[in-house]
């Protein structure tokens, strides 16, 4: 499975040349048969997806391809159905109509094989588990499906600066530290798809900026596809390869903006004029070109 992942990730780099190979060091250089270049491998494929609750249409026919190994943000106004879309992709809710494929399988299958790692808006840590045990939670359930190459949560915790807090309880941590544990918990699963639902929404501005850097560093060098739902334009542009802008409910993608800033991105990427221009582009799309 790991070999196949490496292969597809390599293809993605070839097809989307704006992605520098740094994130995929070691895999990008491998040679790929010529014919595969024309068949981009997608981690998430959505075809004419709709989601209806009673009379309320939450997602309009939506078609979407997210290439393997890319970091894609979905940004849109509150209540526009972003979270619903994420729940459908994560296999937690069935689609009303249309087709969704995650990692080459229906979402329910991907879910049962632990191919999707979620970072929810609230950290959702178990108060009776230590930091280390919380980081292991997703590996502790449904163990049969654990990947062979699961990352050691302890190393990841050290990487995000929680090495001294392995045996602390969640209530002893700040909000940002708790969310870092939630990030590690998802990454430790080594799933090919990471889905994050406004993971930093509850944090203050300063912590948020820190978390963005930590997330970028964690994802750098991994072959995982990331679907990142956010309200923050700067966050979306700074982290992503692509920013999808969603309309108000029912959810529709009104703009698909490629972020071609080189990687790895410096911490002061926000000062880059291209960054500023991209943010403006996203903002215009968000407000329907009215601002």
């Amino acid at each position: 499975m790991e070999v196949a992942d490496g292969g597809t990730a390599g293809i993605a780099t070839e097809v989307w040349p704006h992605r520098t190979p740094t994130r995929l060091a070691g895999v990008a250089a491998c040679s790929i048969p010529e014919f595969l270049h024309s068949t981009p491998m997608s981690s998430i494929v959505v075809r004419d997806l709709t989601k209806v609750y009673g009379d309320l249409s939450v997602v309009d026919p939506l078609t979407l391809d997210i290439e393997t190994g890319s970091f894609v943000s979905l940004i849109g106004p509150s209540g526009c159905g972003k979270t619903t879309l994420m729940r459908v992709i994560a296999g937690l809710e069935p689609a009303s109509s249309g087709e969704v494929m995650v990692d080459g399988a229906p979402p329910a299958t991907a879910r049962s094989h632990k191919r999707v790692a979620m970072v929810p808006q609230q950290p959702g840590l178990l108060p009776w588990r230590t930091v280390e045990a919380n980081a292991r939670l997703l590996l502790d359930v449904n163990r049969r499906e654990n990947p062979e190459a699961a990352d050691d949560p302890v190393n990841l915790l050290r990487e995000v600066g929680l090495g001294d807090f392995l045996h602390a309880y969640p209530h002893e941590l700040s909000g940002g530290m708790q969310q870092r544990v939630a990030l590690v918990r998802a990454l430790a699963l080594h799933a090919p798809l990471l889905v994050m639902d406004e993971p930093f929404a509850a944090l203050d501005e300063i912590t948020r900026a820190e978390m963005r850097v930590i997330l970028a560093r964690l994802v750098e060098g991994r072959a995982a596809t990331v679907l990142f739902i956010t309200h923050s334009i700067a966050e979306a542009v700074a982290l992503s390869d692509r920013v999808l802008v969603s309309s108000p409910r029912p959810s529709r993608v009104v703009a698909d903006i490629t972020v071609d800033l080189p990687r790895p991105r410096p911490d002061d990427v926000e000062d880059d004029p291209r960054f500023v221009a991209l943010c403006a582009q996203v903002r215009h799309a968000l407000h329907g070109g009215r601002v």
């Binding site: 094989h113 999707v116 979620m118 929810p120 609230q122 959702g124 939670l137 359930v141 499906e145």
Partner: peptide, 15 residues
Amino acid sequence: ADPATRELLASVDAS
């Protein structure tokens, strides 16, 4: 029980 954690466990198909 925390709904966020319940959802999280559901996302990895916990029994």
